[in-house]
């Protein structure tokens, strides 16, 4: 349906070769400030949260590059201006676990996450089957959410397929048994050891999927592409297109971590709506889908998600290559 609609949009515009485009100025109202929460708690890890706010639609975007000589304060300032980063030690933020233990999150620079400046709790460590409540006090308002870390499902086997006419690059695949009788939702992220610092969703393909049609069956996921660094979104003329191969495919010989995580239904709904949003936003022929957040509070968006993570590490060698 969506593709049909898109095709129609293309036909509509292309048949009428007469159509023309003009640059206009639109007078958009100043938006109310919106708090954006991206929080997660993963098996064996401390909770980690990013906070940001919305910025005006026509505000310039300027993402500074982080290197050794950069002044941290300058970078934070630039990220605040361009991406709406909120990095403020006065914000009161806590995570409470099932046994009512309250842990406070403090500003932390984490080089394994993007955009590096978040908030971390030091005492609580994610455990499967546990639920966690997040509370935020920001500018006198309260925000909260609750999530659960579902039980992880482990990957049974992994294989590698060379790309056609190529003996160095290819894609991975894996299979696992979906637990029968339970509704399962999964996310998939990967990391190439010694090359990438953070786990990210694959370049193309599903990041989030479920067992609606395959409950209790063997689930095969392929082709699994390399993860997307997430850093070149604001590059419209990116060289990314040129070295697509390097970015999207795994190199024979490299070591890869595959992280299959179980998530709860709210997390699944959020990421599904996120994908729908990316597909519909900006298309003048559809009404844009909004994000279905699990954060409760006045004018906010985002997700507080528990990940029951299972990580498998493989080195791509001949034993993985399929016929």
């Amino acid at each position: 349906m969506k593709t049909t609609l898109k095709i129609f949009a293309i036909i509509l515009v292309s048949i009428f070769i007469f159509s023309c485009e003009t640059d206009i100025t639109v007078d958009l109202p100043t938006p109310e400030e919106k708090l954006i929460v991206q929080g997660k708690i993963e098996t064996g890890e401390n909770p980690f949260i990013f906070l940001s706010r919305n910025i005006g639609y026509f505000e310039p975007v300027n993402i500074p590059e982080l290197d050794d000589s950069s002044d941290i304060q300058e970078i934070i300032q630039a990220l605040e201006n361009s991406m709406g980063l909120i990095y403020d030690s006065t914000i009161v933020m806590t995570v409470t676990d099932g046994s009512n233990f309250v842990d406070t999150l403090i500003p932390t620079i984490n080089f394994f996450e993007f955009p590096n400046f978040g908030y971390q709790a030091r005492n609580i460590v994610g455990q499967e089957g546990q639920s966690y409540r997040l509370d935020i006090q920001y500018k006198g308002k309260d925000y909260w959410s609750e999530t659960i870390i579902p039980e992880a499902v482990s990957i049974d086997s992994i294989w590698f397929d060379f790309n056609e006419d190529n003996d160095t690059l290819g894609t991975l695949g894996f299979l696992y048994m979906d637990p029968a009788g339970i509704r399962n939702f999964y996310t998939i992220e990967t990391l190439v050891v010694d090359e990438q610092f953070a786990y990210n969703p694959p370049y193309y393909g599903s990041y989030i999927f479920d067992d609606e049609q395959l409950d209790g069956d063997t689930i095969r996921y392929f082709p699994l592409l390399k993860s997307y660094d997430g850093n070149d979104f604001f590059q419209t003329n990116s060289e990314g297109q040129n070295d697509f191969n390097q970015k999207a495919f795994y190199e024979f010989g490299s070591t890869v971590n595959i992280k299959l995580s179980s998530v709860d239904v709210a997390t699944f709904i959020f990421w599904t709506s996120f994908i729908k949003h990316l597909n519909t936003a900006g298309n003048p022929f559809t009404n844009p889908a909004s994000l279905k957040s699990n954060i409760v509070g006045d004018n906010c968006d985002g997700i507080w998600a528990g990940y029951g993570a299972n990580i498998k590490t493989v080195t791509i060698d001949n034993s993985l290559v399929r016929e």
Binding site: V26, L28, P29, T30, P31, K34, I36, Q38, S52, R53, N54, I55, G56, Y57, M83, G84, F114, P201, Y228, G230, N231, F233, F234, F274, H277, L278, A281, G282, P284, N287, P288, S290, L291, D301, G302, I303
Partner: peptide, 22 residues
């Protein structure tokens, strides 16, 4: 009438467009 974005924010590195009232 049309619905236009009034702001944007970033989630997972992607731009999310915040639409104004319908």
């Amino acid at each position: 009438t049309t619905t236009l974005p009034v702001a944007r924010y970033s989630i997972n590195g992607e731009i999310i467009e915040e639409y104004g009232p319908r």
